[in-house]
Simulated assay, not measured.
Amino acid sequence: MTTPSLSMPDDFLTDADLLSALPSVRSEILIGYARVSTRGQSLDRQIDALSTAGCRKIFADKKSGKNALRPELKACHAFLTPGDTLVVPELARYGRSLADLITMVAELRKREIGFTSLHEKLDTTTTPGGRLVFHVFAALAEFIRELIVAGTHEGLAAARARGRTGGRPTVVNAELLKAARDLLPDPQRSVTSIAKLLGVSVGTLSNHIPDLQELRASGMAADRLAAGSTR
């Protein structure tokens, strides 16, 4: 498999103010997001930290990071407007995975929204490296998308070499589900075609992968981000 190149967006080397903070025009409005993974845990410490940081409004979920259903995070993203800054207690409270974190932070950059993580002392609004952080995250988002596409093509070639023509497997196992999760973010393939390749129905994928729609959305977001960064 050819290793995708980690390429920077076109404006990475051409912007004279590469290290200037983003957003360029700030509203001075700080919006906080907190999360705990179980209902037995308390949000108090995180909310206190966000309040101390000056957050005007705080959204909070009591959901596992692996759970795609985080309604308060969705509401938080919808509430943010250009010039605002999203503040989180730590990176682990925001992203479900590194790929998820990269995609969301890169999307904030595209929307001209600042990002601050208190624990890691990451602040794109005031530190000289703020804009550099956003550029790197955008490049990583594109790199992850290229890895997914390359892996998809390799998997298809391997399936064809084995003469695979579909057909329902006797067991929906962990290996099949991992393959499905790797394929789903690829915007070049439909859910129907992925199900056919793996020999299952679309309904089976939906039943066994509760965050199927989020996986599809993350792939589309990375695709849009990659397209935007090369303009």
Score class of each variant (00 low, 15 high):
G167I: 03
D211M: 02
D182A: 15
A227Q: 10
S20H: 10
G155R: 13
D123Y: 04
V87A: 04
D44L: 12
D44N: 13
S42D: 11
I102D: 00
A150N: 10
R224L: 13
P23L: 08
L86A: 07
T125E: 04
A195W: 05
L215N: 02
E28M: 10
C76H: 06
L22M: 05
T52L: 13
L197N: 10
S193W: 03
L22R: 07
K66D: 07
P71Q: 10
T170V: 14
P169H: 10
L140T: 09
S190P: 02
S42I: 02
R35W: 02
S27A: 10
T14H: 08
A221Y: 04
M104W: 02
D17T: 06
L18E: 07
G151P: 00
L184K: 01
T124A: 05
R26T: 06
I58H: 04
V25Q: 14
S64V: 05
A106Y: 00
K62G: 02
A174G: 07
D84H: 07
R189F: 08
Q213Y: 11
F115H: 06
M104D: 08
K62F: 03
H135T: 12
L91R: 06
V191M: 08
L86H: 02
S42H: 03
L147D: 12
L69H: 14
R39W: 03
H119M: 15
I58C: 01
E90G: 15
E120C: 09
I47F: 04
T3Q: 11
L73C: 04
K110M: 12
H77R: 14
R160I: 08
V149F: 08
V87W: 05
T124D: 04
S229M: 11
G114V: 03
L156Y: 03
S117Q: 11
F143A: 04
L91W: 00
T165N: 15
H135L: 12
T127N: 09
R160Y: 06
R111K: 15
E142F: 00
A92C: 09
L30I: 01
R45S: 12
E175C: 01
N207I: 07
R111I: 01
E120N: 11
L118W: 03
E72K: 13
L86C: 08
I144N: 08
L22Q: 03
Y33T: 05
P210A: 15
K66L: 09
P185Y: 01
L69R: 14
F79K: 09
E214A: 13
P210N: 14
A16L: 10
M104Y: 04
L197K: 03
P185C: 08
G166L: 11
S193H: 06
E28I: 01
G83N: 07
S27P: 09
T81C: 09
A53I: 08
T165I: 14
Y33K: 03
T152G: 12
N67G: 09
L140I: 09
R164V: 14
G95S: 06
M8T: 12
S206A: 15
V200F: 02
D186F: 00
G199N: 13
T192I: 12
D84P: 06
R160V: 10
N173C: 11
R145V: 02
L69P: 00
K178Y: 04
V171L: 15
N67V: 00
F79M: 09
K178H: 13
A60Y: 03
D211P: 04
